[in-house]
Amino acid sequence: MSKEHTEKRIVYSPEGDPIEVNPLQDYFCEDLPEVHKASSIAILENFRNWARSRSLWVLGFGTGCGAIEMRPLMTPKFDAYRYGIQWRPTPRQADVFVVSGYLSVKTLKRVIRTYEQMQGPKYVMALGSCTINGGMYWDSYNTINRLDYYLPVDVYVAGCMPRPEALLAGFDQLKKIIREGRGEGYNKYAEEFAWYKANQKKIIKDWDMPDYNW
């Protein structure tokens, strides 16, 4: 979008005093993410992980061509609901971010923002070769090659494109990971935040958002 909205500007209070507005600082929380330890009570954490694995709310955000493969999951033929998988329209309420296919730099920016707005524990599932190594867009000037340099990926589903069965298998894998307590991708993101941010900032040249989008 146009740049003037992110630059500093002066507004005037009702009394006519000037107020300087610095959009990035003033509108957005600037804090960085923290690591959240799992509960030390094993049985409690196991129970929670069971619930997490049985209730995967997926964010309805199709980034690339793979989005078309996600829709059949909800049809009678595949019926992902029976595994506790359902779509949510807002990142605040979603647990799983399915990155469905190639990511241009422009889309990556939105993906990062949305991922950061989700509440932890949160999981990333990457679809197709494009997210693994760039796929057929490996030498494009505008498409990323490896998603795991920008976001902590929990599960990759290979293929170009993977079919819904593969996706279901991916979800199954994700469940296993969560159940075993290894679904801590978001903590990894917080731990290695500087590295992720550096990678992100390397390709997103006009960085016009706070470092972490709460």
Binding site: F47, A51, T75, D79, Y81, R82, G84, D95, Q119
Partner: peptide
Amino acid sequence: GARVGRRYGIPFYQPYIDIIKNYSKRTRI
């Protein structure tokens, strides 16, 4: 609703899991 749509549908106790899941979330704003 699922059966009407010829789906298998969620387990009937799914709402419990969803609630527990939501309480198990570690971050909130």
